[in-house]
Write a protein that binds this DNA or RNA. Structure first.
Lengths: 200, 200, 200, 200
DNA sequence: AATGAATGAGATTTCATTCAT
DNA sequence: CATGAATGAAATCTCATTCAT
């Protein structure tokens, strides 16, 4: 549903980003045509280039900005939870709740991850590291508190945990209309396995 | 190193597949030019189309055939190991040993396939399911033997495990020349977390 | 003589069509390269695809639009002529005058279109039917006026007449620089034969 | 229905020609693939090049040989008919009987006519001239006998007559399964118009 | 004579990006 | 700021023809 005309500068930028998320999610980054994004956003093709350097920059911006919001949301979600294991459980739930609430965004971020990993090796997805860093922090604190085994390599554990969440999210997203499993239950299962797996 | 001339029919097909793996891994599927694959394989451009319908078919064929070999290799690796936990450990080691031995193939299977819309959204990757099915089988037998907790949802656990392995493999592959961590150690860590995580 | 730059939207479309007629007539439809048409028209290759779906659509559009103009011209030419036989004579003269005035267009309409499978087997050339319909109308009126034999099958007669004109035009066009006969005289001869052939 | 194997040299050549007629008629010259002709003929692709220089030569050969047979058949048909007008009528009937008996061949010859006219301007379709020459001969004799008007230009008349026959044949062939008119009746109509049209 | 796998030149078309208005 | 018509580079794939067997 293309929206025409009006809108302040910021408003138009937001419309483009939202349109891009929808189109990227729908067709994938490579199949997405700038023209489609523009018409979805209700702006001219050229207008996109007033706000973004190019198509890739648009993808990266989505990643940067949305991940920032996600990181902020994560911090809020973990706030007040003391026990490392409870924090892990909250992390998993938060991850999947995002996937469910913003399916299109989730799809884009997942693809972006592969793309930026692959082609933009100079671009290191910092916001992702921050996201993972939050999990690493939990583990570190857990080790300091003696609740998490000291022999657990945090680097390995954090990527394993993220990979597990990511893969399940991918499967859920790919199932599209007909989810073959319950994400909320999966959050608990994954958290459960990891908590038991790393506990002292 | 283009190889010219000779070779029986089957031999030429293999050369094309191997060249494609190298080129796909190098430049990515979209950036890979059919001409490059052909010259790497030491055949004419058109020859590729005698063996494969198109570029995407080539990618999918690589997946199909290589995964089949991987599945066979996995079966051989697990053969004779009785204990479910030992089998899980062997699974993780096998996964990472493949990544190390066939880095280019791993890159293609992990990164490029994920970027193929057809693969993700239309084509249902049976050989991948078989791979995961092997892990599911281990869990099932473990539950029957009372060694694995009965409340573990196998679907969730198998994708979580695969996701963990996959993500670590991806990180290792992306680091290219300068691995930031030891894959063999990671195999044991991941196996360890999961084993403890699901054990009764 | 490529014309660069300027020109309103409609003007550019016309330039493309005119260039296409020249190039199609020169090299034939299959041998004609889109790039040649573009450079003849003084536009970029891609511009052609802003105005036409593809190369064949360009050919068909030429047919549609030019035939429409030709039909209009025919109507103007016949206007005011009452006697059916005079109208037939005017028809033949008009047909050949077009061939002489717009040799390139004639070549395209006669030769190239006939070689297009789509044109022959799928696309139904309405404007051509209208052209022939004008002749059929003359015959019908002639029969009603008792000047044309009632036993003449109009369908047969109209295609026979058109075929005769068309074939002679073809021979004249193919002779290129060195016409082996006079078209104006031929117009009268053909008209004469047909008029005597169908008169009561 | 591909025929495999056996066959003497000449036999194989005939099979290729027949297959080519079918395939050319089906798909048109440009769309026809040599591979299809070969498999229809039950020979290998390369074999075709043992008998014909190339695809075009195959088309030309069909034209040459079949037209020769047609010319011979025409001579036979006209033999014994004295009256020029009767000969014209026989000519028209013969033309259309061929179209009906050998529809595929007719289609190929018609297309070939355009193609050879267009691209092979050096190749002057002699057998066609012979065919037309037969008609010209009838007219000439008719003029000498005083039955045909002396002011009729034979060159114009012969192409007009051929064009009329050709166009009607084309319409009949294009109608494919559902002929919209009766060719035999059309033969008489066309002959009738021309006879009256040129008679003294 | 026959085969058919291999060749490789070549052109259409797409679409991200620009820039004159 | 905004537009959107125009650009033009770039790459897949086809298929007539060849030639080693």
């Amino acid at each position: 549903m293309p929206e025409r005309g009006g809108g302040s500068r910021g408003e138009k930028r937001v419309r483009i980003i939202d349109a891009a998320i929808r189109v990227f999610a729908d067709r994938g980054f490579h199949q997405a045509r700038v023209t489609d994004i523009a018409s979805q956003a209700g702006v001219a093709d050229g207008t996109i280039y007033l706000y973004f350097r190019n198509k890739e920059d648009l993808l990266l911006t989505i990643f940067e900005e949305k991940m920032q919001a996600i990181n902020a949301g994560l911090a809020g979600e973990l706030e007040g939870i003391e026990d490392p294991f409870d924090r892990i459980r909250a992390f998993a739930r938060y991850h999947f709740s995002l996937v469910q609430k913003e399916r299109a965004l989730a799809e884009v971020l997942q693809v972006e991850l592969r793309l930026s990993n692959k082609f933009l090796k100079e671009y290191r997805p910092k916001p992702l590291w921050q996201y993972l860093g939050a999990f690493a922090g939990i583990l570190r604190e857990g080790q300091e508190a003696g609740k998490v085994r000291a022999d657990i390599d945090i680097f390995t554990a954090k990527w394993a945990f993220f990979g597990a969440l990511d893969e399940l999210a991918m499967q859920w997203v790919l199932a599209r209309g007909k989810p073959r499993f319950n994400l909320d239950a999966a959050a608990d299962t994954v958290a459960d396995i990891f908590i038991k797996g790393i506990a002292n």
